[in-house]
Design a protein around this nucleic acid. Structure first.
Length: 424
RNA sequence: GGAGGGUUCGCAUAGCGGUCUAGUGCGCGCGCUUGGAAAGCGCGUAUACCGCAAGGUAUCGAGGGUUCGAAUCCCUCACCCUCCGCCA
């Protein structure tokens, strides 16, 4: 959410920002509604002042006759007030409906573009592996070693269902323990296991609702299943006022994640790249309300994840997402994409973004700064690791001609083996 | 799932239709007092919106209703507590 005053004062910037993100929102209509809102609010405030004054006179009236006389004069005020309040309620409904659709303004450095095809490569790390044979897909490799069962996954869980078995399960748990160990004692990060089943408010607060309703699973009691631990983690301090000394607050948050993938029916239908149910460890930061702080932590969160990919020996690149490929609330986003040999391209493993105070306004998370002024915190998040997706890159990049899979040095201890072979 | 009790200014409490622009205690801030401290005394101690300002309006878990007027009465919802039932 942007500040309505900011929108009023910077109409052109807001409109240009929305255009850059390829998001349609009628700012002119919002401003007209806001004029109406202010006008009605003023009218209501005046009427109420009149009513309050009369109320005092009624209370201190000397006689019943005097009291009755004043009450009679209040009839019209009450009628007018009721009418104005009803009008305001209608205006506010539209006003709020539009306000939550106004996107945050993308950073100057965000490239123009419509889709992920327009994202700009920022840097690359690691050599793309050369194979003397045709590399197998992660699906074939996992089936070869009985690391996953997709047929039974579908039988039991439906489309995109999966079972992870044997070294498939071991690899996921190895990755989890590897990442846990990297963050368990990392300076300032509080490990936290957070809810996946979350009420509507934190989804609106983080910017996933109202526009992405169709991407979320909803329960018969009205809660939604979160597609990322970010939602519950950001909800943690909802409606609270923090001390400046507490900041920055850094979480290493885990939750199971659920996504309907409603808009991507035909995409990545095989394997564990795009699935309805997965696990994710997420870095979430709340920091002081300064652009410099946001940028500093954004780079740090990105660096943390790059370090993990480097330790896992996965060749990757960092892309700067273009306007059309960043979310409503994001100011700037980097995706980390690791090489996928079967597809001969980089595929996303991490997503690192910052929001300024867009989320904290919606969630009402403030802090008292050194001068005692209340400010909205800035928020950021980035994947630490998402499983089992990253298995795709791990098994494909480390495959050998005989189908065996070398275990990256960093995971050997956790796997208890150096290589996954056919006769496991 | 059933029964009951609760949600008030940072914390604890008062409040039972109009002097509630929410009292009191604690805490916090400033001052007085003191050689210094404690105690004591005095003053202050929310947020949002509108307004140049004076000031006005709103907020007593949330929403709706009754009323000239609601922290106070009624309804719905959320959450917390106690007990019963069920259960990983």
């Amino acid at each position: 959410m942007l500040d309505i005053k900011f929108i009023r004062d910077n109409k052109d910037i807001v409109i240009a920002g929305a255009k850059k993100k390829h998001i349609e929102v009628d700012i002119e209509k919002l401003l007209l509604l806001d004029d109406k809102r202010k006008e009605l609010q003023k009218m209501i405030d005046d009427k109420r002042a009149e009513q309050n004054a009369a109320s005092t006179r009624i209370a201190s009236a000397k006689s019943d006759d005097e009291r009755k006389a004043i009450i009679e004069t209040m009839g019209d005020v009450k009628t007018d007030l009721k009418k104005a309040e009803e009008s305001l309620a209608k205006v506010m409904k539209d006003w709020q409906g539009l306000m939550v659709l106004v996107p945050n303004i993308p950073d100057m450095s965000v490239p123009e573009g419509e889709s992920d095809a327009d994202n700009k490569e920022v840097r690359t790390w690691g050599a793309i592996p050369e194979f003397s044979f045709e590399p197998k897909s992660h699906v074939d490799l996992m089936l070869l070693h009985d690391m996953a069962d997709f047929e039974r996954g579908t039988k039991v869980a439906g489309f995109r269902g999966y079972f992870l078995k044997n070294d498939g399960a071991r690899l996921v748990w190895a990755l989890e323990r590897f990442v846990q160990d990297r963050f368990m004692h990392k300076e300032g990060f509080s490990p936290m296991i957070v809810p996946s089943l979350v009420r509507r408010e934190p989804f609106v607060g983080t910017g996933y609702l109202p526009q992405s309703e169709e991407d979320l699973y909803k329960t018969q009691d009205g809660e939604y299943l979160a597609g990322t631990a970010e939602v519950a983690t950001m909800g943690y301090y909802m409606d609270e006022i923090l001390d400046a000394q507490q900041l920055p607050i850094k979480f290493f948050a885990f939750s199971p994640c659920f996504r309907r993938e409603a808009g991507s029916h035909g995409k990545d239908t095989k394997g564990v790249f795009r699935i309805h149910e997965f696990m994710k460890y997420e870095q979430v930061v709340l920091c002081e309300a300064s652009h410099e702080e946001s940028v500093k932590w954004h780079e740090e969160l990105t660096a943390n994840s790059e370090k993990l990919l480097q330790e896992l020996e996965l060749p990757y690149h960092v892309v700067l997402n273009c306007g059309g490929d960043i979310g409503l609330g994001q100011v700037k986003k980097y995706d980390l994409e690791a090489w996928m040999p079967s597809e001969k391209k980089y595929r996303e493993t991490h997503s690192s973004s910052y929001f300024h105070d867009f989320q904290s306004r919606r969630l009402n998370i403030r802090y008292r700064d050194k001068e005692g002024v209340l400010r909205y915190v800035h928020s950021l998040n980035n994947t630490a690791i998402a499983t089992p997706r990253i298995l795709c890159q791990i098994v494909e990049n480390n495959q050998r001609e005989d189908g065996s899979i070398a275990i990256p040095e960093a995971l050997k201890g956790y796997m208890g083996k150096d290589v996954i072979t056919k006769n496991r």
